[in-house]
Design a protein around this nucleic acid. Structure first.
Length: 489
RNA sequence: CGGGGAGUAGCGCAGCCCGGUUAGCGCGCCGCGUUCGGGACGCGGAGGUCGGAGGUUCAAAUCCUCUCUCCCCGACCA
């Protein structure tokens, strides 16, 4: 018996994934590699995003980009290199990023007069340019986004979640009033919430960061926090900063207002990174591998043709063609024609890669003018006649998208608990129980104590706050807010 | 940057303690054939400066010193 189970385990390690419950971190690494989303690069902390992972990112980009543009934002591109003096203009900003900045000190073989930072984020260079472009209130608001990568020296890299170089977008806006900047920061947070929930099927908690967790140099930082599967840690999945006039003052972005007064501009910045791919993996994945939300899946439907003899092949091939034409152009389909792999292998392979729907087309199906459609998320099989295949596939894709979201939402609620004692808060932190909602007096000392003693941090102060706050879960004094505590990636 | 673990074929490992023929095994890869509705099988093949440098020795994957890298756990972060 013992022998048998150890054999089974050895076999599984070769052919299969480790179960999520056995080692969630290893499961994550194996899925990212196995599904060919990313691979290790020669430089520590850097990863190669492989075509399948990049296709996913491109779909995410397209959908976010559309949303940005709908709010009047335009794309542009700013340089990767930032002179040291520029980076140092906003005091909190430098201090916050100093430990993770990489510097270029040589160029063309000779030492540079002034070291150039490889952007860890682009406020410094963009605000410098904004100072040149903004003269009048008529030049505002300025609404620009850029798609790029940034570099932050990291000691503990994890594919997508924390790499030294990572892909993202950063939006930077400039406004004539504080109110308008605040409204824009909140507007973009809502764009992120809508994108992540609608496209990625990941429910989030929108909120405000505590003082100690906010962006270096920001007046306020807004965030959407998602709960990962497995250890139920939090992942910040998008942030939007109301920078007040901090950067306007530091970079001299001034304008003549309609009242004849020269004023400093107010600004915002907001970013969402390819880290969110990690969230897709961890929120939806199961022991079989990835489950991609149909709306962003590079391949929505994979067709696996099946035959034994040449005669069957001759019958199946044309039938596959008719299946493809009946599916039409509105769905992303791939036909797996590999002839050195068995159907069973392919089933597992595409499940690992998270393709939402599989269509099996074999001799029996040709006979009956039908196909077998299998859902990745539930493994439910449907026998479908070709005549209404397109309709059924479209419905199933929508259904999968909804079900992924609902399943994740149920988990988020199930593993979020209101706690009123420090003991309970710590117990939940130590047992990976999920999010804990608790009252807080807003004293940084209380926040720091929880972090030191339990590793849990305040992920956010949810935008939706209860009427009353009771007593601070840490010190017992009257509380002013309700906070979400959790361990975070 | 602290604490632990590991570097041997593309991947996963054995061999090291106790130095000694041509460094093995599984998966993967290449060729041929049989297969194909839940991870197929047979036969034949290719693939290694044993992470790197130095040392000990007649002889080093194996012993010693230094070094680099990766993974896990902590401090810092999208």
């Amino acid at each position: 018996m013992v022998q048998a189970s150890s054999d089974a385990r050895d076999k599984r390690f070769v052919e299969d994934l480790i179960d999520q419950d056995d080692d969630f971190d290893r499961w994550y690494v194996d899925v990212v590699k196995g599904a060919e989303l990313a691979d290790d690069a020669p430089v520590r902390g850097c990863k190669v995003v492989r075509p399948y992972g990049y296709a996913l990112w491109e779909n995410m980009q397209a959908s976010l980009d559309r949303r940005f543009k709908a709010t009047g934002v335009q794309n542009a591109y700013f340089p990767m290199l930032i002179p040291r003096s520029m980076l140092e203009r906003e005091a909190d900003h430098v201090e916050g990023f100093a430990p993770e900045v990489a510097w270029v000190t040589k160029g063309g073989g000779s030492e540079l007069e002034e070291p150039l930072a490889i952007r860890p984020t682009s406020e410094a260079i963009i605000c410098t340019m904004y100072a040149k472009w903004v003269q009048s209130y008529r030049d505002l608001p300025l609404l620009i986004n850029q798609w790029c990568s940034v570099l932050r020296w990291e000691d503990r890299p994890r594919a997508f979640l924390r790499t030294s170089e990572f892909l993202w977008q950063e939006g930077h806006t400039c406004h004539a009033s504080a109110e308008e900047a605040t409204a824009r920061a909140l507007q973009m947070l809502e764009v992120y919430r809508d994108f992540v929930e609608t496209e990625l099927a990941i429910p989030v908690v929108p909120g405000v960061k505590s003082e100690s967790e906010k962006f270096a140099g920001a007046h306020r930082t807004y965030t959407i926090e998602a709960m990962m599967g497995g250890k139920r840690w939090a992942l910040q999945s998008g942030t939007s900063h109301d920078l007040g006039d901090n950067f306007g003052r530091a970079f001299g972005i001034t304008f003549l207002d309609s009242d004849g007064q020269r004023k400093h501009a107010f600004s915002t910045s907001w970013g969402l990174s390819a880290r969110t791919i990690g969230a897709i993996v961890m929120v939806h994945g199961d022991d079989q591998g990835l489950k991609l939300p149909p709306r962003v899946a590079p391949i929505q439907v994979v067709v696996v043709p099946i035959w034994r003899k040449e005669a069957e092949r001759d019958a199946v091939e044309p039938f596959v063609a008719s299946v493809l034409s009946s599916l039409g152009d509105n769905v992303r389909v791939h036909v797996d024609r590999r002839d050195d792999k068995t159907p069973g292998f392919k089933f597992n392979d595409w499940e690992l890669r998270g393709v939402p729907l599989r269509i099996e087309v074999g001799p029996r199906d040709v006979q009956n003018q039908q196909v077998v459609v299998v859902r990745r998320d539930t493994r439910e099989k449907h026998i479908v006649g070709v005549s209404h295949l397109a309709e059924v596939v479209a419905d199933l894709l929508n259904q999968i998208q909804r079900d992924l979201y609902e399943t994740a939402r149920t988990k988020l609620h199930t593993y979020t608990e209101d706690v009123s004692s420090l003991e309970r808060l710590y117990e939940r932190a130590f047992t990976n129980a999920g999010f804990s909602r608790a009252s807080w007096c807003e004293d940084a000392a209380c926040e720091a104590r929880v972090k030191a003693e339990s590793r849990a941090t305040i992920r956010c102060l949810p935008l939706e706050q209860p009427q009353e706050h009771g007593l601070c879960v840490v010190c017992g004094r009257p509380a002013s807010v309700t906070a979400i505590f959790a361990r975070a990636y």
